[in-house]
Simulated assay, not measured.
Amino acid sequence: MRHVLITLTSLALIGGACSAQARELAANDRYVCSWGAGTAARAQELKLSGVSLYAARQKIQVYKFSKGWMRMMALGITEQTYDSPSRIKPEALRKSFYDDCLRYKLARR
């Protein structure tokens, strides 16, 4: 009887741990990743077209953002994009950024 109770308790704990890992990301996490990927792609477009980092920063300063954290995040993403020697196409960068962001969000759970 004792062994049966221990076995059932172990299986319940394992099942709970597996269901916690298999949870989907929240809609907000997907939104943040999508928004960041779009910001990185726009920054890459500007970089490849020859726009200076200073001009790109000025464009961001003028833009109206819906949330307070977005301006600083957009500036950071733009600076990192300009600092990178990468010359990949903006759409490839968008997909890579989005996939990496989702992977990061899942790893944090």
Rank of each mutant, 00 (worst) to 15 (best):
L102V: 12
P85M: 00
K89S: 14
L8W: 08
T78S: 06
S66C: 01
L25V: 05
A55M: 14
W69E: 01
Y54F: 09
A43S: 13
L5Q: 05
A37C: 07
S66H: 01
W35A: 01
R87K: 12
I88L: 15
A27P: 10
A55Q: 13
A74S: 06
L13V: 15
Y63F: 11
Y104I: 04
A41L: 06
Y54N: 12
A55N: 14
L75D: 13
S19I: 15
L13K: 11
Y31N: 06
S34L: 08
E45W: 01
L25G: 05
R108M: 15
W35Q: 01
A107K: 04
G16R: 09
D83V: 00
D29V: 10
F97I: 08
R42P: 01
A17L: 15
G16A: 14
D100R: 11
G50E: 12
D99C: 03
R42L: 08
Q61V: 03
S19L: 15
L106N: 10
Y31D: 12
Y54T: 14
R109N: 06
M72K: 13
R23N: 11
A27W: 07
P90A: 13
Y98Q: 11
R71Q: 11
E45C: 02
I60W: 00
L13Q: 07
L53Q: 14
L106P: 00
L11E: 04
E24V: 08
K105T: 09
A37M: 03
L46E: 09
Q21A: 14
V32F: 08
K89Q: 14
I14W: 02
L5N: 09
K105Y: 11
S52C: 03
K47M: 03
C33A: 02
A26H: 09
A41E: 02
W35T: 02
L8S: 10
K105P: 02
D99Q: 14
T81P: 04
L5G: 00
A17G: 08
T39A: 13
G16Q: 10
M70S: 00
W35I: 00
K105F: 14
I77D: 05
V51Y: 08
Q58G: 07
